[in-house]
C-alpha cells in the first residue's frame, strides 16, 4: 500500500499553452464528479446512516456494552502494535539508512512484503502457526496458551499488516539527511545513545510522527487479517471493524454505521493531520513521501 505521495502544489506555473476554457471546465467538473461519487459519497453515507435515527439512538449504539468493549480492544491493540512497529521502524531505519552493506536493497524489499500480502493471508499465516491444527497448536494447547481466537493473535496480525509503515517513512528520510551530523557528534565524543537522542531524533521526529499516524490509522481500522484470527467473540475478541461487521450482518444498520462513524472520524482526523504535516513540515518528511512507491 502506497501511502501518500505528498502533492504540495502551492502555486501553479504560468502557462500559455493550455486547454480551451470549456475543456478545462469539463475536466474539472468530471474529476470532481469522480471524487464526489467514489470518495465523498461513501463518507457522507456513513454519517448520514449513523445519525438517521437521531442523536439518542446514535449514542445509545455507541454506549452498548459490546461496542464499548470493541472500542477498548481496538485501543489496546493499537497501543501495543504501534509502539512495537515504531521501535522496529527507528532501529531498522538506523541500520538501513546510516550504513552500507550487501543485501541492503533486498532487506528493504522484504520489509515491504506485508503491503503486498492480502490481509486475509496475513491472518491465515498465524492461524497456520498457532491455531489448533497449526505447528505450535498442540504445544500451546498443552500449556493452555491461547493465541488464535484471542487478543494476542489480533495483536500479531495487526503488527504484521502495519509492520512497514514507520520504517518505510524513516528510511528515505534518514538516507536523505545523510550521516554528517552523526559523524560530527562522534568526533565530538558523543556515544551512541546520546547521538540518537540529541542529533538524530530531533531531525526525524516529524517523520516518526507521520509514520505513527499512518500506522495507527491502519492498526485501528484493520479488518481482514484481524477477522481471520479473532474468532468474533462478542465483548472479548471483537475490534471495532469486526463489531461493525457483526452489527451489519444482524441488520442493525444504524448501530453498525454509528460505530463505523467513529472509525470514519479517525480517518478524517488522520487525513487532516497528515495534510497539515505535509504542508507544515514538508521538508522534514518530504524525502519519505517522495520515494514511496509500492
Amino acid at each position: 500500500m502506497a501511502l501518500a505521495i505528498s502533492s504540495s502544489t502551492t502555486s501553479l506555473p504560468r502557462r500559455s499553452v493550455t486547454e480551451p476554457a470549456w475543456v478545462r471546465l469539463l475536466l474539472i467538473v468530471s474529476a470532481l464528479g469522480v471524487l464526489a461519487l467514489f470518495l465523498l459519497l461513501p463518507l457522507v453515507t456513513v454519517f448520514g446512516e449513523a445519525f438517521s435515527k437521531g442523536l439518542d439512538a446514535y449514542f445509545g449504539a455507541l454506549g452498548d456494552d459490546d461496542a464499548v468493549a470493541a472500542i477498548g480492544l481496538t485501543l489496546t491493540v493499537a497501543a501495543i502494535a504501534v509502539p512495537l512497529n515504531v521501535i522496529f521502524g527507528v532501529v531498522g531505519a538506523w541500520c538501513l539508512a546510516k550504513f552500507d552493506f550487501r543485501g541492503k536493497s533486498l532487506l528493504i524489499t522484504l520489509i515491504d512484503i506485508p503491503f503486498s500480502v492480502s490481509p486475509v493471508i496475513s491472518g491465515l499465516v498465524y492461524v497456520l502457526l498457532f491455531g489448533l491444527q497449526g505447528w505450535f497448536g498442540p504445544w500451546l494447547k498443552l500449556h493452555d496458551i491461547k493465541l488464535i481466537f484471542a487478543v494476542p493473535g489480533i495483536v500479531l496480525a495487526t503488527v504484521f499488516v502495519t509492520f512497514p509503515f514507520v520504517a518505510r517513512e524513516l528510511i528515505p528520510l534518514m538516507e536523505a539527511q545523510g550521516t554528517e551530523e552523526e559523524e560530527a557528534a562522534v568526533v565530538l565524543g558523543a556515544g551512541g545513545w546520546r547521538i540518537f537522542w540529541h542529533v538524530t531524533l530531533p531531525n526525524i521526529k516529524w517523520g516518526v510522527f507521520y509514520g505513527v499516524l499512518l500506522c495507527n490509522a491502519r492498526a485501528m481500522g484493520e479488518f481482514g487479517a484481524v477477522s481471520v484470527v479473532s474468532g468474533h467473540i462478542r465483548g472479548l475478541t471483537n475490534t471495532m471493524p469486526l463489531h461493525v461487521e457483526i452489527l451489519y450482518n444482524e441488520y442493525n444498520y444504524m448501530a453498525a454505521f454509528a460505530v463505523a462513524s467513529l472509525l470514519a472520524m479517525l480517518a478524517l482526523v488522520t487525513l487532516a493531520v497528515k495534510s497539515l504535516l505535509e504542508w507544515r513540515f514538508s521538508r522534514e518528511i518530504a524525502a519519505g513521501t517522495r520515494h514511496q512507491k509500492t
Partner: peptide
C-alpha cells in the same frame, strides 16, 4: 479534494464496505 484522494487509504475497509 487533493487531501481527499487519500481517503481510501485512511478509511477502514469495513467502513468503506458497508457504506
Amino acid at each position: 479534494f487533493d487531501a481527499m484522494v487519500d481517503l481510501p487509504f485512511a478509511l477502514p475497509t469495513a467502513v468503506a464496505g458497508i457504506a
